[in-house]
Structure formats: C-alpha cells, structure tokens
C-alpha cells in the first residue's frame, strides 16, 4: 500500500518543491494556471450548488413518492458513478457539441464543462441526502401542520434545517470530485488555455510537455485547496448538526 500511496505522494510533494518556494509560487501563479484554477473552482462550486438542490429534490421524490419505474430511477442515479469517465465524455460532447442531434452546442464553453460535472456529481448529492430522509420521522413536520403551517413553509423551516448537514456533506463530496474530474470533461471543454481549460487538463498538458515540477506544484496546490474546502464543508456540516441536536 505504501508503494501505491505513500511513495507517490512523497514524490509528488518533493517534485513540487524542487527549486524551492519561489519555483512553486511561480508555477501556480502562471496566468494559464490561475485561469484554469479559477475556472475549475467556480464551475465546481456552481455544480455542487445546483446539484445540491436537484439532488435533494430527487432524493425527496425517491423517498416519498410512489410510482412505476421508481426503482429504475433509483438505480439510474448511480450510473454516473459506475460509468467510465471517457464514455461519459465522448457521449456528452456528441450530445451537446457541434454535431448535437438536439441542436444544443455548449462545447468549448464553461456550460459544457458544467453539464459534464453535473452528470458525474449527481449521485453524490442524491445519496448524501437520501438515507437521512429515509430515517427521518416526520413528527416535527406533522406538528407543524397541525399548527397551521403550509407544506412549503414546513419544508423550509422544519425539514430543511435537519437536512442541511447532509446536503453540505454531499456538496463537499461533489466539489472534491468536480475539481479533479478529467475524463468526462476533457472532450466537451475543448481545453482551450485561458478559456476552457480545467485544472486537471492543465496539469496533464504540463506533464506531457515535460514540465513535471510545475505540474507537481499545481497538483499540490489543487490538493491542498480541495482538502481545505472539504474540511470547511465537513466542519460546517458537523457544526450545524450539533446545533440541531
């Protein structure tokens, strides 16, 4: 196991800092690097946010509704998780790119990137909220309706607060997956430097050009960033669930 994790991680960090702090700083402040990172982070956040809403809605339907094909829906949710990223990648660019059968072309733009990220992160948001909804007893909500609260109001003020910790944790997972995503994004994004190049593509390009140390530097930065964001989401999630207890 150390073969596979420890040694490579050490190598990565080592190469990131060969040439010391100045070289590291230099690598991550290249315009192309900053553009790629900015693009990736913004789209990843947007994706996590949109899918938090969609995921919660879908989880709600899965738990509360009864209809034909519900178990099919439940299984399909896991598809983006099980499907190889290249398959998603080539399919999405065919569906929503220049040769789109439905005449939607969002390739070579951040919209295309976001569609791909929405695809791959959907299961995280749904599966984070679903078990919490399933094990919730709805007595608080029932009490609210006996007090005259209407369904939407009850949802916002009673149900949602209980769900927030799991929604946040799902968002954290979605975000972490989204900023590192490569295979499903690389086709539809077009990889145009400064415009539609995501961080992972940039790192890949650097590695192909032999700029391994810079690639390592940007990687380490991205990793630390992801860890920090995951930590923040986790912290918020725990804090809020403590407040609720």
């Amino acid at each position: 196991m150390s073969l596979v994790i420890l040694i490579p991680v050490i190598a990565l960090v080592g190469h990131a800092f060969t040439g010391g702090l100045p070289a590291f700083w230099d690598a991550i402040t290249q315009t192309e690097a900053l553009d790629a990172i900015r693009l990736t982070v913004l789209v990843a956040f947007a994706t996590a946010f949109i899918n938090a809403i969609a995921g919660t809605a879908i989880a709600w339907v899965l738990v509360h509704d009864r209809f034909i094909g519900k178990s099919l829906l439940n299984s399909i949710i896991d598809l983006p998780f099980a499907l190889p990223t290249v398959v998603a990648g080539i399919t999405l660019v065919t569906l929503y790119g220049p040769y789109s059968p439905v005449h939607i072309n969002v390739a070579n733009s951040w919209v295309g990137i976001m569609v791909a990220l929405l695809f791959v992160t959907l299961p995280f948001n749904v599966r984070a909220v679903q078990p919490v909804l399933e094990s919730m007893d709805f007595s608080a909500e029932e009490a609210a309706s006996t007090l005259g609260s209407r369904p939407l109001r009850t949802f916002i003020y009673v149900t949602l607060p209980t769900l927030v910790p799991s929604i946040l944790s799902g968002m954290g997972l979605a975000f972490a997956r989204a900023i590192g995503e490569f295979g499903s994004v690389v086709f539809i994004s077009g990889n145009e430097p400064f415009h539609t190049e995501v961080a992972s593509s940039y790192i890949f390009a650097l590695s192909q050009d032999g700029e391994l140390n810079s690639a390592a530097a940007v990687s380490v930065f991205l990793l630390v960033f992801a860890l920090v964001v995951l930590g923040v989401f986790g912290f918020l999630s725990r804090r809020i669930s403590q407040r609720i207890q």
């Binding site: 050490i10 190598a11 990565l12 590192g180 490569f182 391994l212 390592a216 860890l227």
Partner: peptide, 16 residues
C-alpha cells in the same frame, strides 16, 4: 485516492 483527481494520482506515480 477518493479525494484526488486521477490525473494527480497518475502524475505522482510517474514522478515516483
């Protein structure tokens, strides 16, 4: 590995 981009994993392995 769950939290890291596969590109970074590949890069780390290559470097090592």
């Amino acid at each position: 590995p769950l939290a890291i981009s596969p590109i970074i994993i590949g890069l780390a392995l290559e470097l090592a």
